[in-house]
């Protein structure tokens, strides 16, 4: 019944069997907190984000942090080597993680990361795409949908303009990027289900 945490936001998937569930959770939380803070700092730098209401800033971050982290840490999933690098720096093979209990979410994360990395986006393009991921007017609990929608449209226009300028002969890249948004939603839902299972256990 040895437990493992197969999320790469941990330093390692191995869990000390002497620790209580609460202690394990605290340690996990301690691992991902700096990454979450970085997402908040990133959001603050999106032009117009700070002009949204405090409620909507929090709602967007609550709903979108996981998706932003998936984009930012896509490079942790090495499709060629079939490994995942955890925050502690150690790599684990897909087979090892499967033996530890990882399931469909791991496969889906690999698929997503591979497709995203294959687009060969620059840092600036990736950053703007990440802003588009975060500022989505259809997240639950948004008070001022019009304001979020206006910012979302501005960001999407900026992304299209940047991609068109940088990849004049690859017009499909922008479409492919927008199609990543529902993929991220799907990963977010799968991840929430895994968290529920973890909390229940």
């Amino acid at each position: 019944n040895r437990m493992h945490l197969v999320c790469p936001m941990n330093t390692s998937p191995h869990v000390d069997p002497q620790k209580s569930g609460h202690e394990v959770w605290e340690e996990f939380s301690h691992s991902f907190t700096p990454a979450v803070r970085e997402v908040v700092e990133f959001a603050k730098k999106i032009p117009g984000f700070r002009d949204l209401s405090q409620h909507d800033q929090v709602s967007l971050l609550k709903a979108g942090t996981f998706e932003v982290l998936v984009v930012r840490f896509a490079s942790l999933f090495d499709v060629k080597d079939r490994t995942v690098t955890f925050l502690g720096g150690k790599k684990y093979s897909i087979d090892t993680l499967r033996a530890m209990g990882a399931g469909d979410l791991l496969n889906s994360m690999f698929d997503f990361s591979e497709k995203l990395m294959n687009l060969g986006l620059s840092e600036e393009e990736m950053s703007l795409f990440t802003a588009v991921v975060l500022v989505s007017a259809d997240r639950s609990g948004i008070e001022n949908v019009n304001s979020v929608e206006a910012l979302q449209e501005t960001l999407i226009r900026a992304l299209r303009s940047l991609i068109t300028k940088n990849h004049p002969n690859e017009s499909a890249i922008f479409t492919k990027l927008l199609l990543k948004l529902p993929d991220l939603r799907s990963l977010n839902n799968m991840h929430s289900e895994q968290l529920l299972a973890f909390k229940v256990h």
Binding site: T33, V40, V58, L61, F66, E193, L195, K199
Partner: peptide, 27 residues
């Protein structure tokens, strides 16, 4: 599991990280 962010303690981390900036705005 309607609010995974709250269950994770994410909301608390987010609010604290945003707070300095939001207080700045209120000033």
């Amino acid at each position: 599991f309607s609010d995974p962010a709250s269950n994770l303690g994410l909301e608390d981390i987010i609010r604290k990280a945003l707070m300095g900036n939001l207080e700045e705005r209120q000033d």
